[in-house]
């Protein structure tokens, strides 16, 4: 653009304040989780230390944290596996025109924008009417899929849009069948993209709250457990747990972005 005008500096300051607004609260609890044993829920900080980060792993202080973490981990991996398979297949289906593709596409969008609580309530009602027991690995799994599948599907559509069909046609001309073409040509090309989408899907599931809230059954996932803690845990251990789980998902996100950028670069050359 032209020379830096006054509006540039005004907007720069505005942008800086916005980033501070986004990250400020998170940084606050990072700092507050690094207190010594005499730490409290708020400032001033009397001493620094790793005491509360250590407390997270001692069950008696903060309720049961290890088991919900294990459940969220397992659920995330399950959701990731199902989402990857289903979204890759569906996005490959969309490379060919077919009747009803519009309906399926809008169904996907609908899954993304229907208020989350309705999904949770609906699944809860279905299980109630059927007389099934809600569980994180059944009703919870389904609730997560309504959230991760559309996201993964839309990204996969983008990946396949930039995909050069010439390689596949070459493979077909040389006599490769559908399966062979997929494993020998398509899969290696979209592999890094899949890794990115997989990581993203995992974090979406790992942090999901609203859709799971009514259908997780007796055993909580980690976000539900943390939500419960907000009312009865009054020590910085809550912040420490928040810090650890945020660092965990943020690093996965960064990894996902990096692989995604890598795949875009690779497809361009």
């Amino acid at each position: 653009m032209a020379k830096r005008s006054l509006s540039f500096y005004v907007l720069l300051v505005f942008f800086g304040l916005f980033v501070l607004f986004l990250y400020g609260p998170m940084i606050t609890i990072f700092i507050l989780s690094l207190q010594g044993p005499d730490g409290t829920l708020t400032f001033p900080i009397r001493s620094f230390g790793l005491y509360w980060l250590g407390q997270v792993f001692r069950e008696q202080r903060i309720g049961n944290f290890v088991e919900p973490f294990g459940r969220s981990l397992l659920l995330g991996l399950l959701v990731m596996a199902i989402t990857l398979v289903a979204s890759v297949l569906a996005s490959m289906g969309f490379r060919q025109r077919f009747r009803g593709s519009g309906v399926i596409f809008y169904l996907t969008i609908a899954s993304l924008i229907v208020p989350s609580i309705l999904v949770s309530l609906g699944i809860g009602i279905v299980f109630q009417v059927m007389g099934w027991q809600t569980n994180w690995f059944s009703s919870g799994l389904g609730a997560h899929l309504t959230w991760t599948l559309p996201v993964a599907f839309l990204i996969m559509l983008g990946i396949f849009n930039r995909f050069d069909h010439a390689y596949e046609e070459a493979a077909r001309d040389l006599g490769a069948g559908d399966l062979n073409t997929f494993w020998e040509i398509v899969f290696p090309l979209i592999g890094p993209g899949l890794l990115g989408v997989g990581l993203l899907t995992f974090t979406l599931s790992y942090d999901e709250f609203t859709r799971t809230s009514l259908v997780s059954g007796q055993d909580n996932t980690l976000p539900l457990e943390i939500f419960g803690m907000t009312t009865n845990v009054t020590s910085p251990a809550l912040y420490a747990l928040g810090t650890l789980t945020t660092l965990f998902s943020a690093s996965l996100i960064l990894l996902a972005y990096l692989t995604y950028l890598l795949v875009m670069k690779r497809q361009r050359t």
Partner: peptide, 8 residues
Amino acid sequence: PFWTSNII
């Protein structure tokens, strides 16, 4: 931040 937990 939007990919991390809403609760946190």
